[in-house]
Nucleic acid binder design. Structure first.
Lengths: 116, 116
DNA sequence: CGTCTGTTTAGAGACCTGTCAACCTAAGCT
DNA sequence: AGCTTAGGTTGACAGGTCTCTAAACAGACG
């Protein structure tokens, strides 16, 4: 459907050594910066935290929207940014849309930050 | 000298549970988002990676500037952003300025991302 | 004082965040 | 089926923020 970042050659080990080990290449830096940028907004960070800590591993948008002071379209926009950064994924199930975290992506970022 | 973010009640454990454990409060989200935002630029991410992976744990600005295609003032600006985010610190030593990473801050972010 | 290193300031242009309005899909009802 | 209502996303636009450069500034050394 829409573009999504892929850092997850992680499996191959091609990506994501801790920063303490080696400096980043220009290309890697760009991909990773896009993911960090997605986390660089308080609303998105709270959204991700609600999704990630949700029971059952997923949460309905209808539960997210009322938790914030911004309008529905704004939440939808932030979710799209997180989606395109590859940090979450969502799908429609009947009337409602449900979102899940993508743990590998978050683990990749954590690894970069040097929790070796 | 200048303001700097402090998340590092980390020592007290007051902060920074993994997102999988609990959703973030509004205040925490704001502080953490500011740190992630600092990482949300390719140039800054590469700067941080060079600083963090430098031998001896620190690096001279004079070694950073020539590695990028942007002008000196721009590098200086990005370093300031990283400094104010609490991710690095630097001091003048004679003619040159040297920068070091602040590992606790990076570890705090990694922990948030759930590498429990 | 003159030079070299690095930071700060000021400003132009691009990008991001939030809102309103329009749209699409699914479900319920006659 | 057709009509209506509700949940979410998309598009267009205003206002603020970020990134970058050029020029002026400050600190260290000869």
């Amino acid at each position: 459907m829409s573009k999504q970042l892929v850092v997850l050659d992680a499996a191959t080990g091609a990506c994501c050594e801790p920063l303490t080990a080696a400096a980043l290449e220009s290309g890697q830096a760009e991909t990773l910066a896009a993911m960090f940028k997605a986390l660089g907004d308080p609303t998105r960070l709270r959204l991700l935290s609600m999704i990630t800590s949700a029971e059952g591993g997923e949460i309905c948008v209808c539960e997210l929207t009322p938790a914030f002071d911004v309008s529905g379209p704004t939440i939808s926009h932030h979710l799209k940014v997180l989606r395109e950064a590859g940090l979450i994924e969502g799908d429609r199930r009947g009337t409602w849309v449900w979102y899940r975290p993508m743990p590998e992506a978050m683990r990749a970022l954590a690894t970069i930050l040097g929790t070796a």
